[in-house]
Amino acid sequence: MNDQHDILRNRARELARPLKDKEQESDVLKIVEFQLGGEIYGLELDHILEVYPLRRLTPMPGVPSFVQGIINVRGQIVSVIDLRIFFEMHSEELTDSASAIILQSKNMEFGILADAIIGIDTIVKKEIMPSLPTLTGIRADFLKGVSKERLVILDGAKLLADTRLIVNEEVV
């Protein structure tokens, strides 16, 4: 009984707390947290179109290995990239709960493979620290920073702008 009381009281206190960052809307960063290869990453909400369950992934021939295939999102064909291969990390089998995070810019639209979508979170920009020295290689190029909770925040704009992801290969 006491536990229930405590939980309810805390929840009420949470709700009653005024939003600190109301006046500083621009100071916070909304991100989608997702799990990939045992690690949790964050991605800015601004570049995300939607998340979509990864069903009927159709592999494509003649594409780089990091392109896992294509999916049908309500009639639109979107390619899905496995960041683990792109980041030259160890690749694993897909889980049942695997989803695709669809990124969209003016010129570019593709999906990123995620093992599981955790949820939405808000991070204060000031608290974002620069990149960790342990993160090296190609990954370091797409890193926006590391949050207080050691959450690796990827830079969606850089991902969308990177030319390496553009597949332009002719089959001879």
Binding site: K30, V32, L45, I48, L49, E50, V51, Y52, P53, D96, S97, S99, I117, G119, I120
Partner: peptide, 26 residues
């Protein structure tokens, strides 16, 4: 349930995109 979860995330994304108007939806 999984789809509901994704749905909620998409809803949150939409709500975020809607800005101040979407807060209730969030």
């Amino acid at each position: 349930t999984d789809q509901s979860n994704l749905l909620s995330v998409n809803a949150a994304i939409e709500a975020a995109k809607a800005g101040e108007y979407g807060k209730g939806f969030a």
